[in-house]
Design a protein around this nucleic acid. Structure first.
Lengths: 127, 127
DNA sequence: AACAATAATAAGAATTATTACTGTTATTAT
DNA sequence: ATAATAACAGTAATAATTCTTATTATTGTT
């Protein structure tokens, strides 16, 4: 969009997010990449994640335990959050509706996108 | 439930949340009550909101601009968030489904509750 | 009413996630 | 090549929330 220059680290950040389905935090991505890019700065991770989100290349899944979680899969799909361990899991459940369409009757504003987040306990935490 | 003593301030905090449909933050509730209870502490608001949530008497609507937002209406209903001004509005839209039921097929954990949040721009911000 | 037991609170320090700033480096265009 | 500027590291700053401790309020019991 803007005069954006190429950057190896930026690529790596997006790549790291795309390589996982764990919906990680900025901190997690930083920890993953730090060994590969020893002079990587946490601020760079935050800044680039913000850029990606502004561009619509990634989405925010919301905040879990005070940390924002991201997803490189921008297709509409629901998420499950384990309120005990903080895991965020994609829900392959087929929702029999599209929240955005269902909400088109909403008269108090214009809707860009919708999130569906279910909370509970994951398998590992139930046992 | 517990050995919980009665407290005027705790009542006031819940009352303040119940008195509005703006889904306020802890800070907002604090600002509302401070004139009435000059020795009210922000920490008290946070602590009691946490208690209410643990008891299921209120719900968290999520984080908007870094601040958690609360709702005293615990019945399942969707929310709209204006990404420009941060307003949180109840959606009276009748969802033609119950996310919790729709998600009962989810096999990776047990679901306690679901949230549906739509993002966009409110009327005031569109003009 | 006085009293002990203990829950609730105020105040502020501490923690933690995120953002802003500054000087340097890397990338692109000329 | 070199000039223009985006991107960066490193650090400082900010802001929301939680934690700690001494004090106060509430409740049940004399």
């Amino acid at each position: 969009m803007k005069n954006r220059k190429h950057s190896r680290k930026r690529e790596a950040i997006l790549g790291a997010l795309r390589s996982t389905k764990t919906h990680p935090s900025a901190e997690w991505i930083y920890a993953q990449l730090k060994p590969l890019y020893p002079d990587l700065s946490l601020g760079t991770v935050y800044r680039n994640l913000s850029l990606f989100r502004e561009e619509g290349r990634i989405i925010s899944v919301g905040t879990v335990n005070g940390q924002e979680r991201f997803d490189a899969d921008t297709s509409p799909h629901a998420h499950f959050v384990c309120d005990r361990c903080g895991a965020v899991i994609d829900m392959d459940v087929e929702f029999a509706f599209d929240p955005c369409k269902a909400a088109s009757a909403f008269s108090e504003g214009s809707i860009d996108y919708c999130e569906v987040v279910c909370h509970g306990r994951c398998h590992k935490c139930i046992e």
